[in-house]
Design a protein around this nucleic acid. Structure first.
Length: 258
DNA sequence: CGTATATGGATAC
DNA sequence: TATCCCTATACGT
């Protein structure tokens, strides 16, 4: 579930449900117990998302930094699962499960996290120029660059696969071979697609929609041309491409025998 | 019951 | 590049 839209949606939900109130905090599983005891009963000030990171601001400049990782999530509670952090008030309980990070940090720590991140298409203060600067001088494949949170914050495997397919760009194309017009189009598409994800709570990339409607991510056939989808390991994550719709920069030729 | 999979990232070599 | 961490669920035996 968690690409950038998920975290922004959670920030909105938590702000609406919790901000301005004293909130009960606990850690049934025990791994957040000390911080929970410190925070419980104090005032939840605000929630903020940056890329795939979520920050809960509590009274006294205490911040809880949450990163969901690959399979973390907030679920309506109380559950009987392994709950790292439970936030509760009368009428509302949410349970954090499986997060890769849930820690009490300082404002300086939060600033340091954000300093490592590239522009987040969901934030109005985003400067796409910074992402372009890195992409256009990198020979790394665009498929890797889009997943690199230092380049662009919030894009994960689904949005990567979809944005490249929509723009007919092969994941193996080096960043420096991406045209400015292509980057601008991808950025604009990502802004809209991520916003749609925030509104809908899921990643739907095809206009004719339907739940889980995607052009290529986890599809057996390319939803544009019907051709086969190629899937391969790219730095430990599955990359997807339709070799017909998304052309490689240059054909691979067998190395001549020497 | 085991095993594979999941939209991520830090750290070690 | 490899390994490890985080937890639930789907599916095969």
């Amino acid at each position: 579930m968690p690409e950038g839209h998920t975290l922004h949606r959670l920030a909105l939900e938590h702000r609406a449900a919790l901000a301005g109130r004293r909130i009960a905090v606990s850690s049934p599983q025990g791994r957040f117990e000390e911080a929970a005891a410190l925070l419980s009963g104090t005032r939840f000030e605000d929630a903020e998302a940056y890329g795939k990171h979520l920050f809960h601001w509590w009274a006294g400049e205490r911040i809880v930094h949450v990163h969901l990782g690959l399979y973390g999530k907030f679920v309506p509670g109380p559950t009987g699962l392994q709950v790292r952090m439970r936030l509760a008030r009368r009428g509302y309980v949410t349970d954090l499960i499986g997060a890769t990070r849930c820690a009490l940090v300082t404002p300086a720590d939060r600033d340091a996290v954000i300093a490592r991140l590239g522009p987040d298409p969901l934030r109005s203060d985003a400067e796409p120029e910074q992402a372009w600067a890195r992409i256009t001088r990198s020979k790394a494949p665009i498929g890797k660059l889009l997943m690199d949170q230092r380049v662009l914050a919030g894009v994960g495997n689904v949005f990567r696969a979809e944005v490249l397919h929509v723009h007919r760009i092969h994941p193996d194309v080096p960043g420096l071979r991406i045209g400015r017009d292509q980057f601008d189009a991808m950025w604009a598409w990502l802004v809209a697609a991520l916003q749609r994800g925030v509104a809908e709570g899921t990643i739907t990339t095809r206009p004719d929609g339907g739940d889980l409607a995607r052009w290529i991510y986890k599809q057996e056939a390319c939803q544009a041309c019907g051709g086969p989808v190629r899937r391969w390991d790219m730095a430990g994550r599955w990359a997807y491409a339709c070799e017909s719709c998304q052309r490689e920069p240059r054909a691979r030729r067998p190395r001549p025998a020497s």
